[in-house]
């Protein structure tokens, strides 16, 4: 089974992303939404965590939440896929279940 994990907290504020990555099986999809999108910015001090885990997980970030926070898609870590809400729905539909790391 493939799971979708969503994270909505900035890695600068809480450990939700760490916690998610410590319990998400290889092959899982991880979607960053709301304040978690700040963790998708290349060169942020937490970016290495995501870069180092790219062989285990496929990462996604919600575009509307990036835009709302003034983050240019061009500054997102290479290999992190930007999706819109329709893409979010597709991720939920194409995986077997979803866990929200709040």
């Amino acid at each position: 089974m493939t799971m979708l994990h969503t994270v909505n907290k900035s890695p600068f504020e809480r450990n939700a992303l760490d916690s998610c990555m410590s319990m998400a099986n290889k092959g899982s999809k991880i979607l960053l939404i709301e304040d978690a999108v700040v963790g998708a910015v290349d060169k942020n001090t937490h970016a290495e965590k995501i870069k180092g885990a790219m062989s285990d997980y496929t990462f996604y970030v919600l575009g509307p939440d990036l835009q709302a926070r003034g983050i240019d898609e061009g500054n997102v870590i290479d290999g992190v896929n930007v999706v819109d809400y329709a893409g979010y729905v597709d991720l939920v539909a194409e995986t077997d279940n979803v866990q929200s790391w709040l």
């Binding site: 909505n8 939404i33 709301e34 304040d35 509307p64 819109d84 809400y85 329709a86 979010y88 729905v89």
Partner: peptide, 12 residues
């Protein structure tokens, strides 16, 4: 933002 996100998700 939870309620807003949920609304956007439902609409999509």
């Amino acid at each position: 933002q939870a309620s807003d996100s949920a609304l956007q998700f439902c609409r999509a």
